[in-house]
Design a protein around this nucleic acid. Structure first.
Lengths: 197, 197
DNA sequence: GTCTATAACGTGATAGAC
DNA sequence: GTCTATCACGTTATAGAC
């Protein structure tokens, strides 16, 4: 992950990390300002209200996810095992050091206290993820690589929920809980757990 | 669910609802006092610090879960389909009106900002749940009722993570996401989705 | 684009009367 | 067991100088 050099993107990077670590009410403009060596008011210059900052963060999450899947689709066309691994890599990437939690899980957990614009973007992010992954599962079953019963959309929902829940557990307990969940998901798809990362 | 009549338990009931709706930093002594028609200081009398209140809540969640599983084990001995439904009923019970989210998901999402005692109890609750459910899955497979590969503990972890993630999604998007996830979980266990509630 | 200064508010918490 | 009164602090946010 390339770190931004301009202040605006530095703020977004740091705010995202703080959100994932501490929840929406758990981080403040003061945290951001202190860490970046600037003042409170400077952060407000770039994002007038916290709702603006929060909404921009989620919009960026959506853009990043879209870029990631476009990259995967391009690099591994129709190679569903790699696409699955790419999808799993998203929540896994957050379970490093203390960065800890998948943003969607935090946003959904804090959903009722989020400003309207953040609620809308959160739903959009959730939808985007399931929609793409649903296509991957469907294709993989047609190819005879994935085995499961029921609609691909249902299976996509279930796996996405499991990855999200496992990401939360990993942050609170142990990272291995995430990996064990992934292993079981792959078993349930009829895959050997040793698929290349 | 029987509502408590004494103040101390009224506080716990309400605090739990607020926690599940708004996260740990999203509720305050003022919220509780206003709703119960008492004053800030009265709440502090029963729970001197917020950490005390939070810890007591989780301890009660653990006791309630233990009572619930004891009840299930007694009412449906060795009847794994009913035990499974009883386990699913826990997160489902929170998806009514706006009560919305499974406590464990919120606590794990807010984990890094929780006081030490709350962190310990949260881990304990998570462990309790998976441990009991792991036994149910193992028994069900021995009986030939559940079909799955891999260790029962892994499958229990995966299903628990899925229920937790689905509970969060239900709160943020639509309750049906929870039910669809449950349907898929049952399909993956080789069950018909029409098992008695 | 960043600063100083400050406003207006909510928070967790305490002392002491009743 | 609940009250009034109060405190110290962190929060989001704004005005205006540089």
């Amino acid at each position: 992950m390339i770190k931004a050099t301009d202040t605006k993107n530095k703020i977004l990077d740091l705010a995202a990390e703080l959100l994932q670590n501490r929840g929406y009410k758990g981080f403040s403009y003061a945290h951001i300002a202190a860490e970046l060596g600037i003042k409170n008011a400077a952060v407000h210059y770039h994002f007038p209200t916290k709702a603006d900052l929060g909404t921009a963060m989620i919009t960026r999450f959506r853009e990043q996810f879209q870029s990631w899947t476009a990259h995967l689709d391009n690099k591994y066309p129709q190679q569903v095992e790699h696409l699955l691994d790419g999808y799993i890599a998203v929540p896994r990437s957050f379970i490093k050091n203390d960065n800890v939690v998948c943003p969607l899980g935090v946003l959904e957990s804090d959903f009722n206290i989020l400003p309207d614009t953040m609620q809308r973007e959160t739903r959009g992010l959730s939808y985007d993820m399931r929609a793409w992954f649903s296509g991957v599962l469907n294709l993989g079953r047609e190819q005879g690589i994935f085995e499961f019963s029921g609609p691909a959309a249902d299976k996509a929902l279930m796996i996405t929920a499991a990855l999200q829940g496992a990401s939360l557990m990993a942050g609170a307990e142990s990272p291995e809980l995430f990996e064990t969940t992934v292993t079981q998901i792959k078993r349930d798809l009829g895959l050997k757990p040793d698929v290349v990362l």
